[in-house]
């Protein structure tokens, strides 16, 4: 077994493109769930909105990628309003069910034959989605990384992605220290108390949903640009629950919670997968096959989410007092 290679692959995934997509979704969810206490189970819909905005603008309409970023943010805002206005007045569990239903509804719509001309049906939209972005790549054409296995194109995405992620983290840091942040935290802890202070709780919740959704949409934009492909069935509800796991792992209502959660989550998941695959390929484990690794990874993830929630709901770096999960 080549532990050096396993380690390299693991690090590549822990900081890689897929991890970044989840990171954006988690930063957004941290505002919604961590700070405001909104049980948004449809975060994947915002990621899908971002990805499909790029897909439709660039491929279907043949317009500029830069325009698609604006459209992506508009789409996620509209989605947040559509989701929020009917449901934010309802109890937390209703919001959870409606948001997960809306994310499925959206997925079924974009993969339908009826809208195949726009969204590409079940195959989705595939093609040169991020050309304008990749044209800006300043790295020399023959560039290769010494240790990590990112291609020149992926490295460019990773550099921009992490810069953006740090920028958003800084934004969240400022936001939660502002008066606005104090109000939303108040809503999370005791909604009635905030109402009695004369705050319009509904508007604050809606704002949190819009801001969190917008950041998640960047995950979708990154997805489309980096993977050059937008496919409906990658936006399953499970995506949202992975994001929840990431957030709870790192610690909800912590500014660096999403970053810590993402890196640790992908490090563990990828590391475990690589080690297990390697054990199987080298014949140390013969009762499993290489295809089982994926299932076992997901099993562990589900188990991890359960155990985290039961034994350490504040995650690795969270503060239990900060997060009274049951503001019901």
């Amino acid at each position: 077994m080549d532990f050096g290679q396993i380690f390299t692959l693991t690090i590549t995934q822990a900081f890689g493109v897929t991890a970044l997509i989840y990171l954006f979704a988690a930063i957004g969810l941290n505002i919604q769930f961590g700070y405001t206490g909104l049980l948004n189970f449809g975060q994947v819909a915002f990621v899908a909105a971002g990805a499909y905005a790029v897909g439709v603008i660039v491929l279907t309409l043949d317009l500029s990628l830069w325009l698609s970023i604006i459209v992506a943010l508009m789409a996620s805002t509209v989605l947040a309003l559509l989701l929020g206005i009917p449901t934010l007045r309802l109890r937390a569990d209703y919001l959870a069910i409606v948001t997960i239903a809306a994310s499925e509804l959206l997925r079924l719509l974009v993969r339908s034959i009826a809208f195949k001309d726009v969204f590409g049906g079940a195959q989705g939209l595939n093609g040169k989605l991020g050309q304008e972005f990749h044209d800006l790549n300043p790295l020399p054409a023959d560039f290769t990384l010494p240790i990590l296995s990112w291609s020149r194109q992926d490295l460019w995405v990773v550099i921009v992605g992490w810069s953006l992620a740090l920028l958003f983290t800084l934004f969240v840091w400022g936001l939660v220290r502002s008066p606005w942040g104090r109000v939303v935290k108040g809503i999370r802890e005791d909604e009635d108390a905030v109402v009695s202070l004369g705050k319009n709780v509904f508007v604050y919740k809606l704002q949190a949903l819009v801001i969190g959704g917008g950041i998640a949409a960047f995950g979708g934009i990154l997805w489309a640009v980096a993977k050059q492909s937008v496919q409906p069935d990658t936006f399953q509800p499970d995506f949202t629950f992975f994001v929840f796991t990431i957030l709870l792992l790192g610690g909800a209502a912590r500014v660096f919670g999403p970053i810590a959660g993402t890196v640790i989550f992908w490090f563990l998941l990828a590391g475990f997968g690589e080690v297990l695959s390697s054990l199987i390929n080298n014949g140390y484990i013969d009762f499993l096959t290489a295809t089982d690794v994926g299932s076992i990874r997901f099993m562990l993830m589900g188990l991890g989410l359960m155990l985290l929630m039961i034994f350490r709901p504040q995650g690795i770096f969270g503060d239990r007092r900060e997060l009274a999960l049951d503001a019901r």
Partner: peptide, 11 residues
């Protein structure tokens, strides 16, 4: 809490 239990059920 009920919300924590809900997330446990997802896991």
């Amino acid at each position: 809490g009920l919300i924590a239990a809900m997330i446990v059920s997802i896991g």
